[in-house]
Structure formats: structure tokens, C-alpha cells
Amino acid sequence: MTAAEIGRRHALLGAAAQDGRVDALVALGNEDDMSGYIRWFIDEPVSSYRTVVMFVPGDGVTVIEHGAAGGAHRHDPEADEYHGVSSIHTVASFQSAAYTAGYEAETLTHLIRKRAFVRVGLVGGANMPYRFLRQLMENLEGVVEFVDATDAVDAMMMVKSPEEQIHIRATAALQDEVFAAVLAEAKPGMREIDVTALARSASLRLGGSAGVILAGSARQGAFAPFKLTWNQNRVIREGDYLSLLIENAGPSGHFTEVARNIVFGKAGSGLLEACEQARTLQEQILPSMRPGASCADVFRQHNDQRIALRHPAENRIFAHGQGYNLVERPLVRADEPRSLEAGMNLAVHPTLADGHSCFAVMCDNFLLSEGGEIVRLHRTEQKVFEI
């Protein structure tokens, strides 16, 4: 991201800190699919080791990450890497070695005491390990008041800037290319994991990263849900169908997702009808997904439309935000308090899954425009593919 974009984010964080009367905002992450707060603060990916960031208004971001024990150095906030970061501290902790679990909290405690902070906002507490939170609060009990600042930062992240929207469009275009590469090379006799390996290879060549690429196959008339990598062992036969989900990030770290059904031969009427109904469900709900719309109301409308087509109501999620998180707010369902806003990047994926005879999916990403238009980002045809 450009320095201007990182500056925009830090200005928003500074305003939130002032509004919440906090001295600093702290977030933690330890994997790259659901640790989007870290990347939003510092535009750097997260490894499987823990990374802690502390934003201080007027002084940029302090990073605590894995490395040599006791490491600490000042960092040029104008540098291309770790732009906006003023200092980096390292600890030699490992999640698999429980006795090291408090090292990040000890370093953060020292930094907070040194600055004499009295009120600190925690961002994304659900990502913070119990030991980290307990030790931090015990160390600073009676000295620092901790408050939950997650909702304020979520509101910033949900609405994408023009620069972020450019990168999100690029991720969708990358996934279209990946899907086309799979269609060109997939064939009967391959295992499901051979197909996802084609997708993963094409994605890496194009600059993709992280995320999930899932596939599941079955004979037509049977159930073929998405499977995680270690379960993608079935050999695909002539006439089978495959459910393929490509949900990874582009070079900037922004997520989108595309999913379709593929038949290795001729598609039967049952699968064609189910996929057309999934497409219809997506098409029917889009006019309701406008700025200002209640997520709970949109979810209710979608379920009414499902029931009208004689399908059971959705009981998990059919649409949600994406950005630096594979799934981020808003969740378009009954328990989401926020409404839709212009600038949101939404994955919309109605799925018909009866558990025994069919798995039909239509998944694409959409941007909500200022004028209320909802724009589909993926260009992969909305159909069952026959190869």
C-alpha cells in the first residue's frame, strides 16, 4: 500500500484513540487469514508466530514480533517496509512451548509502563490468547484501564478506500485467471488435491497468497461439499462433478472468493437446476444489498427467497465482508448489528446443500458503490462448467 493509504489509516486510528480517550491501541495476530488487524495497522503479513502491534497517536506503531530474545531497535517510519512503524521489538516465543507464552505481554507491559499510559484500547480481543491477556492485565492492574476498541476499528476496516478497492478488484481478477487455469488442465483420473494443486500453483505464479482452496467431488446425484486439503483424496471419474472454492488473497493481502461447480463430462438436469437456483438466489438478493440496509433484514429476505424455492433456511452465513480477513464484518445475518455501507467488499455465496444428493454453489464478490449500485467483481461465467 502507498504511504498515503497507511497515513489515512493511522489518521483514523488517531481519531478513534482521541474519541475513546485512550493512549494506545493494541492488536495481536498469529496467522494470515484472520489476523487482518495487524496488516491494516502496518501493511505487513503475519506468520504463524505471534505479532503484537501498538499504535500510539503521534508516534506511529510499535511492533513486537518473533526473533532474537530481547531485540529492540528504532525503525524509520518512512521506510518502504514496516511503513509507519517507529520501533520493533523481538521475543523468542513459541506457541508450542507454553512457558514462553507470556513473553509478548512482558515486553508490552514494559513499553506501556515506560510511557506511563493509563488507558489502552484492545482491538480484536478474540484473537488474543488467554495467557497474553491475563498476564498483561495482572501486570498492569490498578495502573492501566483496558477498554474494548474493536468495534471502532472494525468500522474503519469494513469500508474500503479507493486504493483498497483497486487491490480488491485485482484479487478477483487473479482468481478468475486461476479458475481458467484449472479448467484448462483438470481431467478425470486426478485426485481432488491434484485439482487444488493446479489452482494453488497458478495463484502463486500470479502473486496470490494465504487463504484456502477447497474442492470436493462425487458422482452426480451425490453430495460433493468443499473439503479441506488433507481430505481431498478422492479420484475424480468421468461424469463426476466437483465443487471448487478459490478463496485466497492477492499480492496486497486482500481477500475475495469465487466458487463454481465443474462437471467432468455432461451435466445432468438435477445439478443444472440446483446451480441455476443458487444463481437465482444470488441475483434476487442483490437489489436489497444497498447502503443503509440492515444486515438482519437482508438475511431474512434471503431466507424467505430460499423457502419460496422450497429450500431450507440458511443457518450459517450466505454473505459477509472481506478485506485483510478471509471473513470479516459485516456478517450478513440476524445477529449483525451494523448496516451495509458504500465501499464494502462483500462475498455473496448462496449454497444449496441437502447433505446427500447435491452441493450447488454460486459465489462472487461485490462492491457497494456510493450511488447504491452493487458491482460484481469476478468475471468467471455464472454457470456449471463442463470439461
Rank of each mutant, 00 (worst) to 15 (best):
H66Q: 08
A181Y: 03
G292T: 00
F179N: 02
P291Q: 06
L111Q: 10
V332D: 00
V53K: 04
G208C: 04
Q305V: 09
N139S: 11
V63T: 08
Q232Y: 10
K114Y: 08
N261D: 11
G371S: 14
A353T: 08
V144K: 05
L368Q: 08
G355W: 08
S161C: 07
M34Y: 13
E276S: 12
F55N: 06
D364P: 06
R205N: 10
V143F: 10
Q284A: 13
G71P: 01
L12H: 12
Q220I: 03
A184H: 07
P129L: 05
D364S: 13
A278R: 03
G211V: 08
A24C: 04
V143A: 12
P45T: 08
D23W: 07
E141D: 13
P188H: 10
P287S: 09
E373Y: 08
Q282H: 12
Y37D: 11
M128C: 12
A172E: 03
E163G: 09
Q18I: 11
T107M: 11
D151W: 05
E283G: 05
G323C: 10
A16N: 10
A334W: 00
I262N: 02
G343K: 04
G239H: 06
R21L: 12
N325M: 02
L331A: 05
G142W: 04
L245C: 11
Q277E: 13
V63G: 01
V143K: 12
Y49D: 13
I374C: 06
A105K: 09
Y130C: 11
Q301K: 14
R300K: 14
S86Q: 11
M34W: 12
D19P: 03
V361S: 05
E185D: 10
L28R: 10
V182L: 03
Y99E: 12
R113Y: 05
L174G: 00
Y99W: 09
S161N: 10
V123C: 06
H75Q: 15
G58I: 12
N365T: 11
I262W: 01
E145L: 06
R115N: 14
H10G: 07
L25F: 06
T90P: 05
D148W: 04
I112R: 02
R379Y: 01
G60Y: 11
E328N: 09
V53H: 07
M344C: 04
L12R: 13
V46S: 03
A116H: 14
A101S: 13
H110R: 13
A199C: 01
R50S: 09
A210S: 15
V195H: 04
I64R: 07
T107S: 05
A181C: 02
G372W: 11
R115S: 14
G67Y: 09
E5T: 11
A79R: 13
R39C: 07
G270N: 11
G70M: 02
S96D: 14
V182S: 01
G60M: 14
V348T: 10
M157G: 04
Q282K: 13
P337C: 00
S203Q: 09
I88T: 05
A173S: 10
V212L: 14
I285F: 02
V91K: 03
C275K: 01
A347W: 00
W40A: 14
E145C: 04
L122Q: 03
D176M: 05
G321K: 01
R113Q: 12
R50V: 05
G29Q: 10
L244W: 09
R316Q: 14
Q305N: 13
F264N: 00
L271F: 00
A184M: 07
N303L: 04
G343Q: 06
T256I: 07
L272N: 10
S86L: 13
G29W: 06
R21Y: 10
M344L: 04
T109H: 03
